[in-house]
Amino acid sequence: MAKIVFRLNHVPEPEADAVRALLSDHQIDFYETDSGRWGISVAAIWVNNDEDVFEARKLINEFQTAHTTAMRAAFEDEKKAGNIPSFWQLLRTSPVMVITYCALIAAVLLISIVPIYRFFNT
């Protein structure tokens, strides 16, 4: 019976392609399902043979560990190079946008918290 080895929801296409290539390189028979027209189905990579599930999960886990390490290192390099702005840099360059977002966040929090507060203080 087929089993899910990798969910594809919110996965960037290059990462999904790398997982597909990894499974193909190791001759693991798999197929994919998409999230469907309304995006409510399971988008995933499935392995056909039960014997290959353990090997596929092991390969994918190793890939994800290496990929996570590489992505974090790339992020830190970009951050050190100054290509990723901090909150204060964003505030300095786009004050209207930052203040608008902060006001919207505060409004959502207020709309969420005030009814609960009123309910318990009645």
Rank of each mutant, 00 (worst) to 15 (best):
M71P: 02
T93G: 11
L23Q: 03
Y101M: 13
V96N: 11
A81H: 03
R57G: 07
Y101Q: 12
I4V: 15
S94P: 02
Y31N: 07
T69P: 00
F75V: 09
S41C: 13
T68G: 06
S94A: 13
I105W: 01
I28V: 06
N48K: 10
D25C: 08
T100A: 15
I99A: 13
A73W: 08
L59R: 02
A16N: 02
R57A: 10
P115S: 05
D77Q: 10
N9M: 13
F30M: 05
R37D: 15
N121W: 13
S112W: 06
F30N: 00
L90T: 11
F87V: 13
S94E: 14
N48E: 14
I113R: 00
F30D: 02
E55A: 14
A56L: 01
A106E: 11
M97Y: 04
G82I: 11
F6A: 07
L110F: 12
A16E: 08
G39Y: 04
K58V: 09
I45S: 00
V5M: 05
L59V: 03
M71K: 05
V19S: 02
T100V: 13
G39E: 11
F6P: 01
T69W: 10
R37S: 14
D25R: 04
K3L: 07
H26Y: 04
P85T: 07
A21Q: 10
S41Y: 12
L104F: 14
F75T: 09
V47W: 00
L8P: 01
D52H: 02
E78Q: 09
R57V: 13
L110R: 03
E15F: 01
A103L: 14
P14E: 03
D52S: 07
Y31V: 09
G82F: 05
I45L: 01
P85A: 12
I4S: 13
S24L: 13
A107L: 15
F75M: 08
V47I: 04
D17S: 10
K80M: 09
V42R: 08
N49G: 09
D52T: 03
T122K: 06
F54C: 12
P14M: 07
F30E: 06
I45K: 00
D34C: 05
Y101P: 06
D77H: 11
R20V: 12
A2E: 07
N83T: 08
S94C: 10
I99M: 12
I111V: 14
I84Y: 02
S41I: 08
F30S: 03
F87C: 10
